[in-house]
């Protein structure tokens, strides 16, 4: 690279560096630490909207990254969240299978409707006990379990939840939620760069009403 090119590059980078010191322009990195129960009006409005959105239905694509796999394992399915019922992930690819996460724990249900409960791990706060407050945006519960880092660029935002309990950090790592307005776009469970799960949420429908059959089929 000749000196002229270097000058051009520096010139181009100056405004970026200046902006970075003032406010974030991308969601690539975690934001500053925010008090969950005292996040300020800007964040509180978002939290209130997220907590009040009621039942949600969306399609998702899940990318699982393993340290021993060069490419991610891709799964597709439907996500249902119902207040008081928890979250249900129905995988449609590569196999039909449902995972239900609620107050009672984790339940796996196969295509034939046979259910199997995942026994809780007494070593740490159970995974569902950690995840449910995130899905509900229950600030009081969130504050008990996580530290929060938050960043916003215009309508887009990113919330990084880091468990306070080191055992939970070892189990699930960080939970990162990306969104736009009051819609969640991406959920990430990150233990490391090579070991993470991304759940990309495609078309979110907020405030849906699940039929009794749907509730029976996809929740406990």
């Amino acid at each position: 690279m000749n000196s002229r090119c270097r000058l051009v590059l520096l010139f181009l980078l100056i405004p970026v560096l200046c902006l970075a010191t003032e406010e974030p322009t991308s969601l690539a990195a975690a934001g500053p630490r925010v008090e969950i129960t005292n996040a300020g009006a800007e964040w509180q409005t978002l939290f209130d909207k997220l907590a009040a959105q009621g039942a949600v239905f969306s399609h998702f694509t899940e990318n699982r990254w393993f340290p021993f796999k060069k490419i991610p394992v891709v799964l597709k399915g439907e996500m249902r969240m119902a207040p008081g019922r928890g979250m249900s992930l129905r995988y449609t690819q590569p196999e039909n299978r449902t995972i239900i996460m609620d107050e009672r724990g984790l339940l796996l249900r196969d295509d034939r409707g046979r259910s199997r409960e995942v026994p809780p791990d007494p070593r740490a706060v159970s995974v569902n006990a950690a995840l449910l407050p995130v899905l509900r945006f229950d600030q009081k519960e969130l504050d008990k379990v996580f530290f929060l880092r938050a960043v916003r660029v215009e309508k887009a935002w990113r919330l990084d939840f880091e468990p306070r309990d080191p055992a939970l950090v070892r189990m699930i790592g960080q939970i990162i939620v990306w969104g736009e307005d009051e819609k969640i776009r991406l959920l990430e469970f990150r233990r490391s760069n090579s070991q993470r799960i991304e759940i990309v949420i495609d078309d979110s429908q907020i405030g849906v009403v699940f039929s009794a059959d749907e509730l029976k089929q996809f929740f406990r």
């Binding site: 699982r64 394992v73 196999e95 995972i99 984790l106």
Partner: peptide, 8 residues
């Protein structure tokens, strides 16, 4: 197996 819940 990697696409099953147990894999995690």
């Amino acid at each position: 197996f990697l696409s099953t819940p147990e894999a995690l």
